[in-house]
Design a protein around this nucleic acid. Structure first.
Length: 967
DNA sequence: GGCGACCCCTAA
DNA sequence: TCAGTTAGGGGTCGCC
């Protein structure tokens, strides 16, 4: 634990996989089979020159994980090949079938032939991601000629490795060296930087030891001179090559274990590599720990239903984990914007400047001072990822996830959910002598099954406490209670043939048969049990722990354990996955459906007046694993007691470990429809915990802030303040502000994810069409697949579709394009409001949406399109806005005589606007960290930016008005 | 204007 | 070669 980097060359571990041994195959047959396979491998792998492709074939006793089998083992052939890649080609040969004497043309089901070599090695050596490995003294030998840049390097046999379970002393985290970096490039005017044209002009670096709160190195490498920065080592170079090589040398010197940054995988790292290629610096891309090994860059796309399609690049740097904070944020948090700026504001309450790429070149081409300006900006972009890493405890959470699931840390950002379950399954199977078949991708159509029950929602505003009863980890506990697993499933055919006594099997509501644990204990239930007891243990330790670092580890662990337990069910239902088994997943959901119905019935049957209770209980809603019960009592404590009683009573009717729990009361409770509700949440009778909203606009990322704020505020007034008139007034004021054009543009920005590439869309949609238009304006900055597209709806000809009216907010601001308030009223705010108010207010529609406040006419900038183009701009009276002729200049005939009053007003207005703008400007200057420089920030995600721009416009308008008074 | 297809996002 | 599940609300578009 000294903090040295180590390269250990592990010898003797060979790639292999299994096939089931055809019945009647003896040692001679195997040897013959080996020869045939070797010959076929030679044909297929003509390029790789090895003395022998199939090293050996061993006869072993194993059992397939699929289906309950009475015999404990069968003969399998373990096929050991020369190189990891040959597993795939050998599998291909066996899949397609080969001619075997005496057995005819035969194709073989292969087992564990799709396990990545690195994972295979880890599994067989009991190594999990992020754990400690010991190589005992005397069992290794120093490498004669160093093949790596590591501080220690030696050779050993794989069988000598001792993997330590991450417990006690070994649960400590290694003192990783973390490098956070960011680069700046000088793009040409109007173009996003491209590595084959535009130079890298700065690289900022921060190096931190894992567990410490301050970096021990801060530096920046600049092209051309740069004024000094306090606390930062500024290194200026005359040529770009020098900058790049200085960075490479620095990286090799620091020898970081983890490289972090924001969007480094898709931008910074590939840019550096490609730029060095353009400049012909062949010695640049040696950044890993293997001597003279070059960094490789490959385009990749990742697509899953959970995360949509996402394009990225795979950058191989041996011995260093790349942890891109952008990827981590996108995986772990649902946000409406993932810009570094917005994410920092959200989690760190810290803004950063967003300098448009076109301005960067100007700063570079200035002097040492402007370049210093840029360097400060660049440093901040290296600093914020480190802050996010610390604040969100990514290292702890990811290392613990790797330890729990057994996959390497890098898999957690580059691969999906299923590899984690598979890794656990493979480990457990190995212990039990089971092997996992490589099932061929079944037809995509068949894979659909029935999910959970959602009880009918009795919509309404409930002013009596609503108790909620929840099943704790429903799906995992069903799988444990009924021993559902691949290896306990009985095929319909076997069910008839084996004639198993009914007391030995469970017949699931979906009609499948699984044996009980006395015949065969399921692997999945065993994994789940371990995950759940491990989580209980972690939580218990967490309570005891004092050291914040230990606490961080334990909290990360309990979180990882919970997530892992919950994803086991999903794994079995993933039809395009490693080992789908719909018999398991559909049985799980069928038990779940039965249980929620049973719970509803039991509550309503027992808690009624005929049963001696004061009221009849009513289940008003329920989803998957929860029921919402109105016991009829008025007070919270009584509802809580009944809730506890019901939970205990109903739990008793289920098999262990299925448990129904009482957790909370909603009071009051606004139930809008299935999956949509709001209420005050109480876990103790003294004080409510918080306002809880599910499914409605307040928690959706695709609603504009106007709607979110309005709905939140109304719910606050209705639920907490119990002030319905106040809520109504608030709505009226907001609508009036909107129609009067007093709405900040930042409140009107709608964002939607671009889930597929342009031509894959079947119908036109606002965000898709805008992305396409933006691509035509500037392809490099337009949104890509996987990005979120922010837009506003602008005024257009009557009857225009929304997809014709969507526009980039920045473009709207810069070109003074009027927005369409009517659209926001009719298509954004009216329906959500009605859904909230209708249960509590009669005539909600006329009250809220048709009052005098809706008749305010906006005085917006005339549209450039349509008929307005031909209208002559006419002056209006400064006093009353009536149209006036040119010769009157300021006031209409009615307002004449009040010149002094209106002049005064105009002057006051100008000074007010100036003050407002000044205040916002200073705010932006503070954000950029200097009060002496222009504000360059154009952040789409910063509300101040929109207000500053608007204030600037209003100020100019006010000055124009003032000018009209001077003759 | 009604209706289905498609799209997005969320609950659990 | 890789990708966790289904249920459900609600918006928009385009056709009838």
């Amino acid at each position: 634990m000294m903090g040295h980097s180590v390269c250990c060359h592990v010898h003797g571990f060979e790639p292999y996989f299994y096939i089931s041994c055809p019945p009647g195959m003896g040692p001679d047959d195997i040897s013959h089979f080996h020869q045939i396979l070797e010959a076929r491998m030679k044909e297929v792998n003509r390029n790789s020159k090895v003395p022998q492709y199939v090293r050996r074939i061993e006869l072993v006793q194993k059992r397939s994980i699929m289906y309950y089998q009475q015999q404990t083992s069968h003969p399998f052939l373990k096929i050991v090949v020369a190189l990891p890649t040959m597993v795939t080609s050998c599998r291909g040969i066996l899949d397609r079938g080969i001619q075997v004497d005496g057995f005819g043309m035969k194709s073989f089901m292969t087992y564990e032939s799709n396990v990545l070599f690195a994972l295979r090695f880890m599994i067989d050596c009991n190594i999990v991601g992020g754990n400690w490995i010991e190589v005992p003294a005397g069992k290794y030998k120093k490498t004669a000629k160093n093949l790596s840049y590591c501080q220690l390097e030696f050779d050993c046999l794989y069988s000598e490795l001792i993997s330590h379970a991450p417990e006690g002393e070994f649960s400590k985290m290694a003192p990783f060296r973390v490098l956070s970096f960011d680069i700046e490039c000088a793009g040409r005017k109007g173009h996003f930087p491209e590595p084959n044209h535009d130079p890298v002009i700065q690289v900022a670096n921060l190096v931190t030891l894992q567990g410490e709160d301050q970096p021990f190195i801060r530096n920046v490498m600049t092209l051309k001179s740069c004024s000094p920065i306090v606390g930062v080592d500024v290194m200026a170079f005359e040529t770009e090559s020098e900058v790049l090589l200085a960075w490479r040398d620095f990286l090799r010197e620091v020898d970081p274990d983890i490289i972090i940054g924001y969007n480094i995988c898709k931008f910074d790292l590939p840019y550096l590599i490609e730029r060095a290629e353009t400049l012909g610096i062949a010695e640049f891309p040696i950044l890993g720990r293997i001597r003279n090994s070059r960094v490789r860059v490959k385009d990749t796309t990742f697509s899953s239903r959970q995360m949509g399609t996402r394009e990225s690049k795979e950058v191989t740097i041996e011995g260093r984990v790349q942890f891109d904070l952008l990827q981590a944020m996108q995986r772990d948090y649902k946000l409406s914007s993932y810009s570094l700026n917005s994410v920092s504001a959200h989690f760190l309450s810290e803004q950063k400047e967003d300098v448009h790429h076109s301005i960067i070149s100007d700063l570079q081409n200035g002097n040492a001072e402007t370049r210093r300006r840029l360097a400060v900006y660049c440093l901040k972009d290296a600093y914020l990822p480190q802050r996010l890493l610390d604040k969100l405890m990514f290292i702890y959470n990811y290392v613990e996830m790797a330890r729990v699931t057994g996959v390497p840390i890098s898999f957690l950002l580059s691969r999906g959910q299923s590899i984690k379950v598979l890794s656990q399954l493979l480990r457990k199977s190995k212990q039990k002598g089971l092997v996992i078949p490589n099932v061929k991708q079944a037809g995509s159509e068949q894979g659909t099954y029935e999910g959970a029950t959602v009880l009918e929602a009795k919509a309404g505003f409930y002013e009596k406490p609503i108790a909620t009863l929840d099943f704790a980890s429903l799906y995992p506990s069903i799988m444990m209670a009924y021993n559902l697993c691949y290896c306990t499933l009985v095929t319909p055919e076997d069910a008839r043939k084996l004639n198993l006594p009914p007391e030995c099997v469970n017949k699931t509501p979906s009609g499948e048969t699984f044996v009980k644990s006395n015949l065969q204990k399921g692997i999945l239930p065993e994994i789940l049990e371990e995950l759940i007891t491990a989580r209980k243990r972690a939580k218990a330790y967490l309570k005891e722990a004092k050291d914040p670092l230990v606490k961080a580890v334990l909290d990360g662990r309990q979180l990882a354990l919970k997530i892992s337990a919950n994803s086991v069910y999903g794994f079995t239902g993933a039809t395009i996955g490693q080992l789908p088994c719909l018999e398991i997943s559909s049985s799980v959901t069928s038990y779940g459906r039965e249980m929620i119905e049973h719970t509803k019935k039991l509550v309503e049957d027992k808690f009624k007046m005929l049963g001696g209770y004061e009221h009849n209980a009513e289940v008003i809603y329920g989803d998957t694993d929860s029921v919402m019960v109105q016991f009829g009592v008025d007070n919270i404590e009584a509802a809580m007691n009944l809730g506890r009683e019901a939970a205990e009573y109903i739990s008793g009717t289920f098999i262990k470990p299925i448990k129904l729990e009482f957790e909370k009361v909603y009071y009051p409770y606004l139930l809008i429809s299935k999956k949509r509700y709001a209420g005050l949440l109480w876990t103790k009778p003294e004080k409510f915990d918080k306002m809880d909203t599910k499914g409605i606009e307040t928690v959706r990322r695709d609603n504009c802030l106007l709607v979110k704020n309005l709905v939140t505020e109304c719910l606050h007034k209705i639920l907490i303040d119990r002030d319905i008139p106040g809520a109504v007034q608030y709505v009226k004021n907001t609508i009036s502000d909107l129609l009067m054009n007093r709405m900040d543009l930042s409140l009107l920005v709608i964002t939607k994810g671009l889930t597929k590439t342009g031509d894959d869309y079947e119908v036109k949609a606002a965000h898709v069409e805008l992305a396409e238009r933006m691509r035509k304006r500037d392809a490099a900055t337009a949104p890509n697949v996987g990005d979120r597209v922010p837009y506003v709806i602008i005024k257009a000809a009557k009857g225009a579709k929304a997809y014709e009216k969507s526009e980039d907010p920045i473009y709207v601001l810069e070109n003074n394009i009027p927005i369409d308030p009517q659209y926001y009223l009719e298509n954004q705010i009216s329906k959500p409001l009605l859904r909230i108010f209708e249960p509590i207010l009669k005539n909600a529609s006329s009250e809220l949406l048709h009052g005098s406040h809706t008749r305010s006419i906006s005085i917006s900038t005339p549209s450039n399109s349509g008929i307005m183009r031909f209208a002559k701009k006419q002056l209006s009276c400064i006093g009353c806005k009536a149209l006036i002729s040119d010769k009157d200049r300021t006031l209409c005939s009615h307002c004449k005589g009040r010149e002094a009053e209106f002049y005064c007003k105009t002057v006051v207005n100008v000074s007010e606007q100036e003050m407002l703008f000044g205040r916002l400007w200073t705010q932006c200057q503070e954000c950029q960290g200097s009060l002496h420089q222009d504000v360059l920030c154009t952040s789409r995600d910063c509300p101040i930016f929109y207000r500053r721009k608007k204030a600037q416009k209003d100020m100019a308008e006010a000055k124009l008005q003032l000018d009209r008074w001077s003759f």
